[in-house]
Computed example of a mutant assay.
Amino acid sequence: MSRDDWAEPTVLCHAGLDPAANHGIVNPPVYHASTVLFPTVEALEKAEQGLFDVCRYGRVGTPTSWAFERAVAAIEGGSHAISVPSGLAAITTALTAFTKAGDHVLITDSAYGPTRKFCDAVLTKFGVEVEYYDPLIGAGIEALLRDNTRIVYLEAPGSLTFEVQDVPAIAAAARRRGAKVMIDNTWATPLFFKPFEHGCDVSIHAGTKYMVGHSDAMLGVIVCRDVETAEPVKRTAIMLGSAAGPDDLFLGLRGLRTMGVRLARHQETALRLAQWLQGRPEVARVLYPALPDDPGHALWRRDFTGASGLFGFVLHETSKTRVAAMLDGMELFGMGFSWGGYESLILPARLAGLRTARRWTEPGTLIRVHAGLEDFDDLRGDLERGLARLGT
């Protein structure tokens, strides 16, 4: 049986491992390295020519980073992966790798907030024109593409408003015009969405989230369809000095081994909570593509194989004081700017002035929830008591 025939759970358990090269030890060792020594000038010069799987300096790569990168590339079905210190570093490195002054990029209006800030504050400063598009545009994106459009950037679903994009239609239009198609695939992970099977060139992950899975490391990874795409990304990461730390890489690799079983639990709990919230009088609507009546459900069902633990719900219009009373008293749902860990989180989303191509018009407060690995009944009880505080 070849590795190409392995099912995903087997790939998660074994990708990136090389016990034979490590005295039979199952997990790859953690290399804390900066300087690398060479026995000859010839060996040094040969190392200087390499990009992948070559040790010449700690920032360029070590066996620890290779193990994580090989594992992620295998799970997602890409050619190469490049590890960086955070999800935002993955986003900024990928966007920088393919843009220059005079270029035009199309960014989904539902993008992660720091993605937008980087585009507006940095890309534009260097002469790149940034245009935001309606995430529901589908094949209509053809009308926005120009001869100098270098990147079409997707996030499916959006990490605050959870619109599901028609990735194949957008990717097909972009690729016909020679633009690179990038997607932030953090929500679905490589297990629930396969970007390269749907026309993308680059898949970006905040490994901090589900890959690490325990809220104790910062990590990003950029996965590329082919080596021609991977090479400029790797060169850009090297030039930017963007390298993941060895201990975080170790935690990311360890997290990958259990990501499948954790995601199954996250999904189960999130769906049950979303369904329960639909029946609550305080809730105007729930934003979760796995729900049959969600506007994005048909696309999600067509293209995705699962849903993660992150979703949202909109409260009926009420005062900020009452929303604060609800959130301030939560016992199990912590308030924090992340998700993907074992713990449940809750956060009020602030969208005022953030969207430009597709305005957010809901009058009530949007609440983002991450369903962790706690008991469902305990989580439901915490939310129920919180919703009760809205009326006090």
Results as ranks from 00 to 15, higher is better:
Glu76Ser: 15
Val261Thr: 11
Ala71Ser: 10
Arg146Pro: 07
Asp184Cys: 07
Thr229Pro: 08
Phe196Lys: 11
Val323Glu: 10
Glu69Val: 02
Asp120Val: 00
Phe304Asn: 08
Ile137Ser: 05
Glu8Ile: 14
Trp360Thr: 02
Glu231Lys: 12
Gly391Ser: 06
Glu228Asp: 14
Phe193Glu: 06
Ala179Asn: 02
Ala270Val: 02
Asp134Gly: 04
Tyr112Leu: 04
Ala349Cys: 15
Arg358Gly: 01
Leu123Trp: 04
Ser159Gln: 05
Met211Val: 08
Phe192His: 14
Gly252Lys: 05
Gln49Thr: 05
Ala7Cys: 03
Ser34Gly: 13
Gly220Tyr: 09
His32Gly: 10
Glu45Val: 10
Ala325His: 09
His297Gln: 07
Glu343Leu: 07
Asp166Arg: 01
Arg146Gly: 07
Val130Gly: 03
Ala357Ile: 04
Lys180Ile: 09
Leu366Pro: 04
Ile238Gly: 03
Ser2Gly: 13
Arg3Thr: 13
Arg301Asp: 13
Leu88Phe: 04
Pro289Asn: 01
Phe304Cys: 14
Leu351Arg: 05
Ala325Thr: 11
Ala74Val: 05
Cys13Glu: 15
Arg265Asp: 15
Ile367Gly: 12
Arg272His: 09
Ser344Glu: 03
Arg262Ser: 13
Val314Arg: 13
Tyr31Pro: 00
Ala43Asn: 14
Thr115Pro: 02
Phe192Arg: 07
Leu145Asn: 05
Leu251Arg: 15
Cys224Asp: 02
Ala156Asn: 12
Ala89Ser: 15
Ser65Val: 03
Ser203Trp: 06
Gly220Asn: 07
Ala20Pro: 01
Leu95Asn: 02
Asp247Gln: 15
Ala325Gly: 13
Ile91Gly: 01
Arg177Gly: 07
Leu123Glu: 06
Leu253Pro: 02
Asp303Met: 01
Leu354Cys: 00
Gly138Lys: 03
Gly220Ile: 02
Arg235His: 02
Leu291Tyr: 11
Leu219Thr: 01
Ile346Asn: 08
Gly312Ala: 08
Leu273Ser: 07
Gly127Val: 03
Gly213Tyr: 10
Asn22Trp: 15
Ser65Lys: 13
Leu373Lys: 01
Glu142Cys: 02
Ser83Ile: 00
Asp147Tyr: 05
Ala206Met: 09
Arg235Met: 06
Arg175Asn: 13
Leu219Gln: 01
Gly336Arg: 14
Ser203Ala: 15
Pro63Gly: 10
Leu277Lys: 09
Thr62Cys: 10
Cys224Ile: 03
Ile367Gln: 12
Glu384Ala: 15
Lys100Met: 11
Gly252Trp: 04
Leu51Glu: 03
Asp226Thr: 06
Glu69Cys: 12
Thr186Gln: 04
Tyr133Asp: 08
Asp18Tyr: 12
Lys125Tyr: 13
Thr92Phe: 00
Val212Phe: 11
Pro168Met: 06
Arg285Gly: 00
Thr269Gln: 10
Glu362Phe: 04
Cys13Met: 14
Thr305Leu: 08
Ser79Ala: 14
Ile137Gly: 03
Leu144His: 05
Thr149Ala: 00
Asp4Glu: 12
